[in-house]
Design a protein around this nucleic acid. Structure first.
Lengths: 140, 140
DNA sequence: CTTGCACCTCTAGTCGCTAGAGGATGTAGG
DNA sequence: CCTACATCCTCTAGCGACTAGAGGTGCAAG
């Protein structure tokens, strides 16, 4: 039961101090007990939860999705179908975003390769932006 | 010189009405002339500019980058080196984002595939989130 | 004339933090 | 015990790029 300060929790979890307080404010993290001097005092389980949140945020889950995932984690006997659904939805989003970024990449490469490094009025970059019809990738 | 209303400009450019007003507010778009009844009245050149902005936003350029690109377009005799630099910087960003999303995709797939559709306490999705060490892709 | 849509300005909200003000607490050295 | 200094506290405001809503005006058709 070695309790730690918010700064230590931040160092160990990789979540910044104001962000930890923010998570508490929006109810992702329980209110920890306090020291005599009113300073937050965290337990190891809080650290696990913080790490869970950080990892989920890194995977791009929105706070509301994380809230749902955390409540699943808190009730380990129920079906994991919702967790699966949340992860699958996120996977679909990520796949779409990758496809769209690949199209952008192609278009940007076209622009950059076409730039003759001369004057703006001959510049492909500006030209392509100005006239969308120039673009081979209309997916966006 | 057929002038059009903001609604028509929105329809033709694909930029929403409040967004057009927002662009005017932050100085991306000039203040158009007004009708007797104080309604905005746009010219074809405004439409071009709006389309340019929309396209650049779709390519993920930030407003400040677009401001720079627009000022280049307004001065066609200067060197296009800055336009090239802006596009190249964006290209690098996009490439990094793609790489990072591919890693996320792999991790999400692992989670989803590992889900046995049973109870939460056997669920890979929750487990992987809870214990970062489970993850093969530490790039994030 | 009236219905009803599109327009106007203005303020406030979104998301997920981040920055800063202004003050209290905790700790290490002298 | 005192002082310095880091860390903590709460609270409010700001970021980017919009979006939503309130409350009012303009305009064209029936």
């Amino acid at each position: 039961m070695k309790k730690i300060t918010i700064g230590e929790a931040a160092r160990k979890s990789g979540v910044k101090v104001p962000t930890i307080r923010y998570y508490e404010g929006i109810g992702l993290l329980r209110e920890p007990s306090r020291s005599d001097g009113n300073q937050r005092s965290y337990e190891p389980s809080d650290l696990n939860r913080l790490t869970f949140i950080r990892h989920a945020r890194e995977l791009g889950f929105e706070v509301e999705a994380i809230r749902a995932l955390l409540s699943l984690q808190d009730n380990p006997l129920q079906s994991c179908a919702s967790a699966d659904a949340i992860a699958k939805a996120r996977l679909v989003e990520v796949e779409q975003r990758i496809r769209s970024l690949m199209a952008l990449k192609a278009e940007l490469e076209m622009m950059v390769e076409g730039c003759g490094h001369g004057r703006v009025d001959q510049c492909r970059v500006i030209e392509v932006l100005a006239d969308h019809a120039e673009c081979r990738h209309h997916g966006h």
